Amino acid sequence: MASKALSPAAPIPAEWRDFVALTKPRVLSLVVFTGLCGLLAAPTTINPVLGFTAVLCIALGAGAAGALNQWYEADLDANMRRTANRPLPAGRMDRQSALHFGVGLGSFSVILMGLAINVLAAALLLGSILFYVLIYTVWLKRRTPQNIVIGGAAGAFPVLIGWAAATGRLDTLPLLMFAFVFLWTPPHFWSLSLFIKSDYANAGVPMMPVVAGIPATRIQVMLYTVPMAIAAVMPWPLGLTGAIYGVGASVLSAIFLGLAVRVGLRRESDPSRMKPERQLFTYSMLYLFAMFGLMVADKMVIA
Rank of each mutant, 00 (worst) to 15 (best):
D94W: 03
Y132L: 09
L160F: 09
M208R: 14
P48I: 06
A65T: 01
I135T: 10
G258D: 13
A254I: 02
L40K: 13
R266Y: 00
Y136V: 09
V32K: 01
L99C: 07
M207H: 06
T167I: 03
R218H: 03
G213N: 07
F182A: 03
S97H: 13
F33K: 10
A229E: 09
G104V: 13
C37A: 15
A84C: 12
G114L: 07
A59Y: 02
Y245K: 08
R273W: 01
G204W: 05
I230L: 14
I196N: 01
G248A: 02
L183A: 12
P187I: 02
L240D: 03
Q146T: 12
A5R: 13
S250E: 01
F182I: 00
L280A: 11
G264Y: 08
G293V: 13
L265F: 14
A78P: 04
L76K: 02
V296I: 12
I148P: 11
F195W: 14
G51S: 11
A42Y: 05
S284A: 11
W184M: 10
G152C: 10
M93S: 11
V55G: 08
A59W: 02
F292K: 05
I111N: 04
R17G: 14
K24N: 08
Y224M: 13
F101L: 10
T241L: 01
V226R: 00
A98I: 08
I135L: 08
M222R: 15
V49N: 05
A59V: 01
V103W: 08
S269N: 09
L68S: 05
A303P: 07
G264D: 04
G38P: 15
V205A: 12
A290H: 09
L192C: 04
L223N: 14
G248K: 03
G155M: 11
T83I: 02
G114I: 13
C37S: 13
A116Y: 05
L76Q: 06
A303I: 09
L126D: 08
S193F: 12
L223A: 15
A297K: 01
A5K: 15
I12C: 10
F108Q: 04
N79V: 00
R262S: 13
L173H: 03
L257C: 08
V149T: 14
T282P: 00
F19S: 00
N202K: 15
